[in-house]
Simulated assay, not measured.
Amino acid sequence: MNKMAQGEHLKPHELRVVVLGGYQSGKTSLINTVLSQEPGGGGRDARCLKREGDISGRRLTLIDTPGWWTGYLLTDTAELVKQDLVLSVCLCAPGPHAFLLTVETDAPFTEKKRKVVEQHLNLFGEDIWRHTIVVVTRGDSLKGKSIEQHIESEGDALKWVIGRCENRYHVVDSHSKDPDQVTDLVNKLEAVYAANSGSYFQIDRETLKEVEEKNSAVKLRATSRQDRITEQRQMLEQHGEVKPLTEMRIVLLGWVSSGKSSVRSTILDKEVLVTRSITVQSNIKSGKVEGRCVTVIDTPGWWKYFPAKNTPESVKTELKKSLTLGSKHPHAFLLVVPADVSFLEDQRKSFKIT
Results as ranks from 00 to 15, higher is better:
residue 6 Q to K: 12
residue 7 G to C: 13
residue 9 H to G: 10
residue 13 H to Y: 12
residue 14 E to M: 10
residue 15 L to F: 06
residue 17 V to N: 01
residue 18 V to H: 02
residue 19 V to I: 05
residue 19 V to P: 02
residue 19 V to E: 02
residue 21 G to C: 09
residue 23 Y to R: 14
residue 23 Y to V: 14
residue 24 Q to Y: 12
residue 26 G to A: 00
residue 26 G to D: 01
residue 27 K to T: 04
residue 31 I to C: 07
residue 32 N to F: 08
residue 34 V to C: 06
residue 37 Q to V: 11
residue 37 Q to S: 13
residue 39 P to V: 07
residue 39 P to A: 08
residue 39 P to K: 08
residue 42 G to P: 14
residue 42 G to T: 15
residue 42 G to K: 12
residue 43 G to W: 12
residue 44 R to Y: 11
residue 45 D to Y: 11
residue 47 R to V: 10
residue 48 C to I: 05
residue 49 L to R: 06
residue 49 L to A: 08
residue 51 R to L: 14
residue 51 R to F: 07
residue 61 T to A: 12
residue 62 L to S: 03
residue 63 I to M: 10
residue 63 I to L: 10
residue 65 T to G: 04
residue 65 T to R: 01
residue 65 T to A: 01
residue 66 P to D: 03
residue 67 G to F: 02
residue 67 G to I: 00
residue 68 W to Y: 12
residue 68 W to D: 00
residue 70 T to M: 06
residue 70 T to W: 03
residue 71 G to D: 06
residue 71 G to L: 02
residue 75 T to E: 15
residue 75 T to I: 13
residue 76 D to F: 15
residue 76 D to V: 11
residue 78 A to C: 09
residue 79 E to Q: 13
residue 81 V to T: 08
residue 81 V to E: 00
residue 82 K to T: 07
residue 84 D to Q: 14
residue 85 L to Q: 05
residue 88 S to E: 00
residue 91 L to N: 06
residue 91 L to C: 09
residue 92 C to T: 02
residue 93 A to C: 10
residue 94 P to F: 00
residue 95 G to F: 03
residue 95 G to V: 00
residue 96 P to W: 01
residue 98 A to F: 04
residue 100 L to Q: 09
residue 103 V to I: 15
residue 104 E to R: 12
residue 105 T to A: 08
residue 106 D to M: 11
residue 108 P to D: 08
residue 109 F to V: 06
residue 110 T to A: 05
residue 112 K to N: 14
residue 113 K to T: 09
residue 114 R to G: 08
residue 114 R to C: 09
residue 116 V to W: 05
residue 118 E to C: 10
residue 118 E to H: 13
residue 119 Q to L: 06
residue 119 Q to G: 05
residue 120 H to I: 11
residue 120 H to R: 10
residue 125 G to C: 00
residue 126 E to T: 07
residue 126 E to G: 03
residue 126 E to Y: 04
residue 128 I to C: 01
residue 128 I to R: 00
residue 129 W to D: 03
residue 129 W to A: 03
residue 130 R to W: 12
residue 131 H to L: 08
residue 132 T to Q: 09
residue 133 I to A: 04
residue 133 I to L: 11
residue 134 V to D: 04
residue 135 V to H: 04
residue 136 V to N: 05
residue 138 R to D: 07
residue 140 D to E: 15
residue 143 K to M: 14
residue 144 G to R: 03
residue 145 K to C: 09
residue 146 S to G: 09
